[in-house]
Design a protein around this nucleic acid. Structure first.
Length: 106
DNA sequence: AAGCTGACTCGCT
DNA sequence: GAGCGAGCCAGCT
């Protein structure tokens, strides 16, 4: 193996955005991809899977409010600890979704 | 260069 | 509300 330890430019952007997410708030993979304006939600997930270590990856979840299948419960626990609004086993995206640059209110 | 994989999303049933 | 299939794009072998 010896995989590259250096994240690609795309991954760097993703990591930067994720690290900007404040506690108690979350972002969907598609939302992050939208900020990067490049690739798709899948690439965001892959970038985090490879270089996610170092950023609050648990604050990034699926568009429907469910967490990644590989972490699911682990991520849910972390989010709950930060005060993220939950609706059953899924995150209440309507209340937890975070937008950059203090857009709109809240 | 070509093909396969993957921390996803959307539309339809 | 839950399940299934097709589409999508960057990275790795």
């Amino acid at each position: 193996m010896a995989y590259d330890a250096l994240p690609t430019p795309f991954a760097e952007e993703v990591l930067d955005i994720v690290s900007e997410i404040p506690a108690g708030r979350v972002m969907s993979y598609s939302d992050v991809a939208s900020v990067v304006s490049r690739g798709g939600p899948r690439q965001v997930g892959q970038s985090l899977a490879r270089f996610g270590s170092g950023v609050p990856w648990w604050r990034v979840l699926r568009a429907d409010g469910s967490c990644a299948d590989i972490h699911r419960d682990r991520q849910v626990e972390l989010l709950r600890a930060e005060g993220v609004p939950f609706r059953g086993e899924r995150v209440d995206m309507v209340h937890a979704r975070w937008h950059r640059a203090g857009s709109v209110s809240a």
